[in-house]
Write a protein that binds this DNA or RNA. Sequence first.
DNA 1: ACACTTTGTTTAATAAGTAAACAAATGGGG
DNA 2: CCCCATTTGTTTACTTATTAAACAAAGTGT
Lengths: 387, 387
Amino acid sequence: MITGSKKMIRDINSHLVLETVLNEGPVSRAAISARSGLTKATVSAIVADLIDRQLVREIGSDDTSLGRKPILLEFCKENGHILSIDLGVNAITAFTSDLMGNDCGLKIFPNNYTRDNIISGLIYIINLSLSELPETPFGLTGIAIGVHGATNGNEIIFAPYYDYSGLPFADRLSEHFHVPVFLENEANLSVIGEKCFCYNVPNLIGLSVHSGVGAGIIINDELYTGINGNAGEIGHTIINVNGRECPCGNHGCLEQYASERAILSEYAEIRRLDGVTIEEFTQAYNEGDPIALRLLDQFISYISIAVNNLLNTFNPDVIVINSGFTINIPELHELIRDQLKNRMKRYCTLVPSGLQDISILLGGACLIIKDFLGVSYCAKDSSFKID
Amino acid sequence: MITGSKKMIRDINSHLVLETVLNEGPVSRAAISARSGLTKATVSAIVADLIDRQLVREIGSDDTSLGRKPILLEFCKENGHILSIDLGVNAITAFTSDLMGNDCGLKIFPNNYTRDNIISGLIYIINLSLSELPETPFGLTGIAIGVHGATNGNEIIFAPYYDYSGLPFADRLSEHFHVPVFLENEANLSVIGEKCFCYNVPNLIGLSVHSGVGAGIIINDELYTGINGNAGEIGHTIINVNGRECPCGNHGCLEQYASERAILSEYAEIRRLDGVTIEEFTQAYNEGDPIALRLLDQFISYISIAVNNLLNTFNPDVIVINSGFTINIPELHELIRDQLKNRMKRYCTLVPSGLQDISILLGGACLIIKDFLGVSYCAKDSSFKID
DNA sequence: ACACTTTGTTTAATAAGTAAACAAATGGGG
DNA sequence: CCCCATTTGTTTACTTATTAAACAAAGTGT
């Protein structure tokens, strides 16, 4: 059991100080003391330790009008690196950053890997990305991998679009690189990214609409994944009794109506095409193709049902939508909001993704920051307009 | 901000000791030390303080084979009382208990009260209930009120079946009785009761099917109510696009298919009755009335959809169902489980309510215990069969 | 030059936990 | 019947971390 001890006090206060420097820095000892409620003596002692551990450094003095000039403290963001991977079905994206998520390099690789060579493929990709980074005191601090499926942190439990289930991703990579490795669902990483960089509220739902439909759930500032990592699998909530058949065995699952896959394949079928990309579909829509218009109308309607259901289930501060359609067709967002206003007496805040296609990668970075520092990163300008 | 301090350590450890005595008592100091990881010295100091505060007392020694006999410690459950109210549409139930939720009296009153006299009516009812209790050191420790609607803790925000919205229930009663008063949704209290007395798991969803349909949500051992107390309003999640019209303005809300109100009114309509109670309906069902059979079949089907959607959204440890139908017709539970097994590849644990019609009242008691002691009560036999 | 402010450090006091020794209580074996 | 092993619970000496207050450092304005 967790008992209170002197170590615990120091831990709590040390994290509090570090959090203040990380998220509000540069900042002086006196300002930290005023904001946190810790005495100046305590702050000084903790800061000395943080400087010793190369997490914090003194930079010049601030210009104030009166009194002794404060010594500003700054988080040593470049003393280590983070590696974040988006394990897509068609592409693998590798992103490296400093300890505040600042871009240190992004590489995209086609995903030709099979079940047999995906792990060694990732090792190759990671080594390639790391080779371009300068030496730092901490080196690599962790690896986050976003997958399109359910995970238990180490393995993929269930993923519809690739055959990687049961492979010990995190174990192998962490053996190889000697750092913590987190394997997490893409919707979950995505919502973490949105929270840390854009919409900093305690209860945030990220609605991710890509091939499938998933929700990342943050409750009381913590990611909620359920007992098997299956929470937020709203693609298989039923919104139409006796509706379309779903591979999952049920009828009328949301994913059969409101996913990219559903819309694109319906479009391809009607137009008798072999397949269609989201870019091709967007072009058709922009050129006024009536089929595309009708399908996107359907999409809007079903997404607003999904949001309605999430609002009535979670009553969160904010719901943030991320989908290829809303990225490619910005006006879509207002149309979804209009539909929703018709549905909901009690209106709630629906906002567009602030990070769009890099939300997974930045969310991964935040996960590693939290693990390495024990403190949640929150970008200074993470108060995007919410209305 | 919350800083670590000596007071905080003592608080944490004191609560840890009290929790052990409350939930695992009678128990000796040595046993508390072994279980919690605190040293014997710390436990002794804290116990002395708890005895001083009349929360814990020493009872006789235990019979052990070897060594000095331990002094058993017990929680002073009868040193205070709790009052719990179920503010039903037709009836108001008042329940008094000791500090472990043991029955000290239950009274049922018809609810003839209007918006103008409901608060004074409650004061009358509460005084009547309190008048039968013996004097205790702490006296009344708190009042919990379960309402059939959404609340913000003090007022009713929205309740479809009575006109009490906006009345300052908690403020008035707490002024009058000088104790904390909690106004909470019935589904929320219900799930608290199920957790504390029956199914002690960290992530528990309580599906309450009465006039409407609501879910109580416990995540990481904490009740989650959303930012306006509207979380769990799953009666208005849409499960049938273009389905039946709902007073909320949408079409196809769950509540139009799977609530007592929906089933009973459909039955009354078909049978051309003025209205029908759940008892009358149950009788018809038991006598083999084909309409009742068909409607209950529909009920099972829609409830299994609701459970499917909750499972895919929350992936909890357990979902517990509480409804007038399952209470009156026990075999219903297995039928719902069978339906669900067809739907879900990943099967999850669905269990029947352990507390049935008193879950709201006992949940209210647990809420007060938590507030008064700062510790969650968990009944010793709260490990009901889960399969 | 001096008073005033603000920052950051030092010092003494206090609270709370820990480990280890000790006292108390008890049963069993010689 | 006495002594010892054993277990419980208390006491003691020590350590750690916070706090309040005094103090030193650094800078500005009159």
